[in-house]
Amino acid sequence: MSTAIDLMGERFLQSGDNADLPIVDAHHHFWDLQRNYHPWLRDLPRIPFRYGDYEAICRDFLPEDYFALDAPHHVVKTVMMEGEWDPRDPVGEAHWATTLNARCGFPNAMAGQVWLDRDDVADVLHEYKSMPLVRSVRHKPVAVPRSEHTATFAAPGSMRCDRWRAGYALLAASGLMFELQTPWWHFTEAVELARDFPGVTIIVNHTGLPADRSVEGLRAWRTALAELAGCANVRLKISGIGERGVRWSVERNGPVVWDAIEIFGVERCMFASNFPVDSVVVKLDTLFAGFKSMVADLKPLQRLALFHDNATTLYGL
């Protein structure tokens, strides 16, 4: 498999043709709702969601479902993100993903669920150390709407919460990276986290959630992103940039992607699908084709880095 992937990368570098481009999908989900409990996908009423009505994704989504959607693109490896599995059993999803990998070869790495401010955090991290599939963990810190955010924000469960930070401090010894999903106006707290714990790699999910596409909103997002980019231990996933009630398009999302790459640099960014969640606003083929068109003017080596090499290196694939 690895030899075939290496040859695919070499073929792309020679041709420069996006049709030959191997892809590592650095952020997606699998779930089996017939067997496993994801509260937000199974319980009624449905929770408020940034894309609006998400009933369409409240169904099983397994590797065979994913790969039925990816043609004509060459997704060669994937990184599965925790899907808000039953919080009473944080490691259960990683055990399930391990059996999934044994059955079909996917996912090739994953981010496990953790609760940094819970008493079981040390035990959960210890168990993940014995699971080769797990490379990182995610715990969404408490966040508030931009209108309610202040410079001194430090709510329980937030990135300035002493208990939350005590759990975060254990990550360096665990060797696991941290997946940060939070709106960009909380990036000041994220900068503090990155600087206070330089031994932990932070991987920003969904480009910092730039949902406000007003001139002022995008300007503030760029400023926050640039501040966080000043921390050498931070990487950026270009994913999850859809808008509520708006079909995903290059015209709407190209400027966000170009700014993100300019701010973080090609070497610290990677593309990802966030499927099946982003299927609410876009088809997988359209998404990957759109990402490819956005960076068509870059050199082949840079495109290979964004779609494949950066994620391969970061997640040890």
Rank of each mutant, 00 (worst) to 15 (best):
L171G: 14
E192T: 09
R219D: 14
F187P: 04
R222S: 06
F197D: 15
T223N: 08
A166K: 11
G217W: 03
G199S: 06
E216N: 11
T188M: 01
E189H: 02
H186N: 04
E227Q: 06
G175C: 00
V200E: 09
F178E: 12
H206S: 09
L225A: 09
V215S: 09
G217M: 04
A226Y: 00
A172Y: 07
T182I: 15
G199N: 10
V215T: 14
A194S: 09
E189G: 10
R195L: 10
P198K: 07
L225R: 01
A224K: 07
T223M: 10
L176W: 04
E192P: 08
Y168F: 15
T182Q: 11
L170S: 05
A172S: 14
H186T: 01
W221R: 01
A211D: 13
L218M: 12
L170Y: 03
E216T: 14
F197Y: 15
G175I: 01
S214F: 00
A226L: 06
V191P: 02
E189R: 03
Q181M: 15
G167H: 07
L170A: 05
M177C: 06
F187T: 02
L180Y: 11
L209D: 08
G208S: 05
L176C: 02
V191Y: 02
T182W: 03
L180F: 12
E216L: 14
Y168L: 11
L176Q: 11
E192G: 11
W184Y: 15
E216H: 14
R219A: 15
R213E: 01
A169V: 03
L225T: 07
R219Q: 14
N205G: 13
R213M: 02
E179P: 06
A172M: 06
F187D: 04
T207Q: 03
T182Y: 07
V200Y: 09
H186A: 01
N205P: 13
L176R: 07
A173R: 12
M177R: 10
A169T: 03
D212M: 04
A173V: 07
A226W: 01
A224D: 10
T201W: 04
E227H: 02
A224L: 03
A172Q: 14
S174Q: 07
S174H: 03
G208I: 07
L218T: 07
L225F: 03
Y168R: 08
I203C: 12
A190W: 09
E189A: 06
I203T: 11
T188Y: 00
T223H: 11
E189N: 05
P198T: 02
L193F: 07
L170N: 03
H186F: 05
A173E: 15
A173K: 12
E216M: 12
A169H: 08
V204G: 09
R195N: 09
A173T: 10
R213F: 01
I203V: 15
L209Y: 13
F197M: 13
T188W: 00
L176V: 03
E192D: 14
A224T: 02
E216S: 15
L193I: 14
E179V: 11
R195Q: 14
D196L: 11
D196W: 04
R222F: 00
A173I: 06
T207V: 05
L193A: 11
E227F: 01
L218K: 02
E227L: 04
G167L: 10
T182A: 15
L209G: 03
I203A: 12
M177Y: 06
E227P: 00
R219V: 08
G217Y: 07
N205E: 15
P210F: 00
Y168A: 13
G217C: 06
F178P: 13
